[in-house]
């Protein structure tokens, strides 16, 4: 076979493989959107769920998902940032750091059900949190931390050493070089990682069933006191998220329109993740521009 022919075959093969991936993705997304979007209405988004009768909405579940995501990021991002910076910038290359890296990898492959049950035993039962957003957020932090840490470490690692040398040779302290130069340069990569993790968190169900619970008590969206039991901001209340709601509707839902609600909710889930991705990317670009070139 001559090189030209081989090239043609290789190119053709690559196109076929890409087409398979695109078809699967387009098929899945298309199925969810085509089935779900017609069920989405203002009423669907803004009313509470009904347990027995038709016509329920997903307002609380949608909010719970978003709130849980924010809470999880508030807990996990600073920890991951610290750990990532340590691993990339400070850690010596020895067996201790290798053990840490291996442990992080093991942690990242933990099944989410295990994380959920662990969170259930430790936070829900032992610490007496009960089924709560906080317990869910901490469980998801376990779930999130390895990926986020690795991602931040990689992003920092990808910043050219020349930048560090430039900073240090200018008489900047190690910390100032990292925080003022390396970190901003790594920001686009870090933001991509945060987006990926957020998608995982948003779509996670198994780890939440045992931690954040499966019930969405009626909350008052005008009560801004996070300590009040009826406040939507209370982190100690049980909170069924969108993904858990979809799971529940499909396993034990007894509302007559369970199927419609679950397909609508799935579409909403995907649309929100998409919006979050685009938003975070735009935000990241904005921050990057602000940090790197004035105006």
């Amino acid at each position: 076979m001559n090189p030209k022919r081989t090239n043609q075959i290789a190119t053709g093969l690559i196109y076929v493989l890409v087409a398979i991936v695109v078809l699967i993705l387009a098929g899945l997304l298309g199925y969810i959107l085509v089935n779900g979007v017609p069920n989405i209405s203002w009423h669907f988004l803004t009313s509470g769920a009904e347990a027995f009768s038709a016509g329920g909405g997903i307002r609380d579940q949608l909010f719970n998902s978003l709130y849980l995501l924010v809470l999880t990021l508030i807990i996990s991002l600073p920890i991951a940032l610290g750990a990532g910076i340590y691993l990339s910038e400070y850690a010596a290359d020895n067996w201790v750091t290798n053990v840490i890296r291996t442990m992080i990898e093991v942690l990242s492959s933990l099944p989410s059900v295990v994380v959920g049950l662990f969170g259930y035993l430790l936070f829900v039962i032992k610490f007496g949190f009960g089924f709560s957003i906080l317990a869910g957020a901490i469980a998801l932090t376990f779930f999130n931390l390895p990926l986020l840490t690795r991602n931040i470490e990689e992003s920092l690692h990808n910043v050219s050493n020349l930048q560090r040398e430039a900073g240090l040779s200018l008489g900047l302290s190690n910390w100032k070089t990292i925080s003022g130069i390396v970190l901003p340069a790594a920001l686009p990569g870090i933001i991509t990682g945060v987006i990926l993790c957020s998608g995982r968190v948003f779509g996670e169900a198994a780890a939440l069933i045992y931690t954040a619970g499966q019930s969405a008590p009626t909350v008052n969206y005008l009560n801004f006191n996070p300590l009040s039991a009826t406040s939507f901001l209370n982190p100690m209340r049980p909170a069924e998220t969108l993904a858990v709601h979809i799971w529940k509707l499909n396993t034990e839902g007894i509302t007559p329109d369970a199927h419609l609600i679950s397909s609508g909710a799935s579409a909403v889930l995907i649309i929100v993740i998409l919006m979050f991705n685009l938003g975070a990317r735009a935000f990241g670009n904005l921050v990057y521009l602000k940090m790197t070139a004035v105006k």
Binding site: S160, L162, Q163, E165, A166, G167, L168, S169, L170, G171, L172, S173, G180, I181, P184, A185, M291, T292, A293, V294
Partner: peptide
Amino acid sequence: VDLRKKIGMLFQQPNPFPLSVYENVAY
């Protein structure tokens, strides 16, 4: 840190910070 403030360095590869020209020089 103090020593490197007094003994500056220029490298083989240009390595400006990913900042504006002004910020680079003023940093």
